[in-house]
Design a protein around this nucleic acid. Structure first.
Lengths: 334, 334
DNA sequence: AACCTTGATGTAACCGGTTACACAGTATGG
DNA sequence: CCATACTGTGTAACCGGTTACATCAAGGTT
């Protein structure tokens, strides 16, 4: 494999000129540029990124930890992150932790070994991550999707507690009294827990009974909704409405409810969370809480890169607005 | 930032021992191990991956090019690829090209600069990529999702032409005569083109008229189905069945058809392609051609890593079986 | 003519790991 | 007792870029 030394020899210039040609062509004379270009073609030169990283100690890369790639919310936020990063000359190195706290720690260390310049993370429990890895993380860090009022680390997202409240309030406004929550495992997601807390607060404020049998925690993922829905519906006094932790689970729940011979929203209402693109295409179109996920990804990239250049260690917190989007999956009780 | 030289100095051993401790602890004496471990803790040592890559010229990384992260087929195949890679001590560096041929070339070069040990790619036009980048690609390469009978490069996937044929034949068997195809842009995907060829062959074999107005090409992605469906349905003689290039577009089409006041499958049948997890949860459950995507991802990783160790440059081709999965979105004509 | 500025180029050290090879000390076998 | 093998460790060169600093030529100013 050819190196800049080979190129320099063939072009009869110094390695410094070759390096300058690569990084700032305007700094080398037209004539020299051409000599270098032909020499490169001649020996099939390939730039070695590792060598650059070693000598500059910069990778121009943001490390991204997401819970899963199979939920498209994360695909959409990643798109925002990538677009913004690309715009500013950064790359994104993405890893997914499958909602596993142990894997998160491993992956964060892995990204740091790879010399990422900054970290953007969506993890099970950001406060736990901060506590456990604070001294290991020596680059700007941003938590995405979680908002942490009192954390010493930047974060961007929505107010999940209020989102959970608003979803539940919408169902209560429609006259529902037995409102269930199909929740992603709290240990896997502080967002899910915060949404649950909003759900609880709403029930209390409205004077609705909180029946523990109406809250089921399941692992995230479409495949895991079956058992959750069964646990909710195979009871003497089943719910008339379900609030799901996210759209994926809401769609999964609607699929399962049909297997039970129930129609949404005639027999039972369903609210999701996220407003993924798919939510407005399924039947019935899903009522949900919209998060500005693309924008959230962009802002996370801005924060991470901004912290890099300004170097004023002050954490930034950004709480964006969510919005209830009423579609067809919710209705008044008959 | 501490280096192995710092660790060596503090532990009063040589840098070679520190390196051995990191890579093969059993090669250093128990006593030495402990000295090194405490020295590392003391100075907060962090391994530098770029230095390793530079000196070993190996990254233990597979570069992966996919068209988009917002279609979950690619999430599911990536999962298979990652699982297999992890099992064998490899990592995956994923980039998405947004179905843009120009971006594909850039990204492939980018991955090569990053010294990936092998490439797994799903690109618009593999033959074009081979022609254009043959001399640039100096690592084992595997095309995923596309099968290329005569290509000098390894590939794994299904027979897309026959998949397209089978989807169309299913509709013809149900008595449909005006069968449309909602196709992802052919220039963006040779899979889409091959599926179209199967569609054509089926129409011919069955003696069905091929009406060019019944084939619309649209960009990939849910958002782009609206116009495609409108073009198909706003005609004097609309189709009674639609074969979509993939499940995402099929789901998008079903959503649009409802906006036209049409019921699937009573008024019009829809067949998808891929069998993403979501396909069996939407209403109506989607009839589709199943690809073993997780398995495809695993096999691609096996091929790539296998080629690396054996180093016998023979390309491997693997055509896995697809399967028609009949669900609720297709029915006989009334 | 002397001096200064500017631009283009070259030299050599450095980034932080890996590893071939040398060497010392200990164990094994005849 | 010595030859031999084996284990554990250290030295130093190397991987392929970047960049501070030195050098030199050309052009402008007084």
């Amino acid at each position: 494999m050819a190196t800049i030394r080979d190129v320099a020899r063939i072009a009869e210039v110094s390695i410094a000129s070759v390096s300058r040609f690569i990084n700032a062509p305007e700094k080398v004379r037209q004539k020299t540029r051409e000599k270098i270009r032909t020499a490169m073609d001649q020996c099939g030169y390939r730039f070695n990124y590792a060598a650059k990283v070693l000598s500059t100690r910069r990778t121009q890369t943001i490390g991204l930890v997401i819970p899963t790639i199979t939920n498209t919310v994360f695909a959409e936020s990643t798109r925002g992150l990538q677009d913004e990063a690309t715009l500013r000359g950064y790359q994104v190195l993405m890893v997914n932790a499958d909602y596993d706290p142990a894997a998160e720690g491993r992956l964060i260390r892995h990204l740091l070994e790879r010399q990422v310049d900054a970290l953007v993370m969506t993890v099970s429990n950001p406060m736990g991550t901060i506590a456990g890895l604070a001294d290991a993380i020596n680059v700007p860090a941003v938590f995405l999707f979680s908002t942490l009022p009192d954390a010493p680390v930047s974060n961007v997202g929505i107010n999940n507690e209020r989102g959970g409240y608003d979803a539940t309030a919408h169902l209560a406004d429609l006259g529902h009294e037995r409102i269930a929550m199909l929740a992603g495992r709290f240990v896997s997601s502080d967002r899910s827990r915060h949404r649950y807390e909003g759900y609880r607060r709403c029930l209390e404020e409205r004077g609705l009974e909180h029946d523990p049998a109406l809250v089921v925690e399941t692992p995230f993922g479409l495949e895991h909704c079956r058992e959750g829905v069964a646990r909710l519906m195979d009871t003497p006094n089943p719910p008339t409405a379900i609030f799901a932790s996210n759209d994926l689970m809401a769609i999964g729940a609607m699929g399962e409810l049909r297997s039970f011979g129930l129609s949404v929203p005639q027999d039972i209402s369903v609210v999701g969370f996220d407003d993924v693109t798919m939510a407005s295409y399924v039947a019935p179109r899903l009522t949900t809480i919209r998060q500005p996920v693309y924008e959230m990804g962009r802002r996370a990239a801005q924060m991470a890169i901004g912290a890099l250049s300004q170097n004023n260690g002050e954490p930034r917190r950004l709480i964006l607005d969510h919005e209830l989007v009423v579609r067809e999956s919710t209705a008044s009780l008959r």
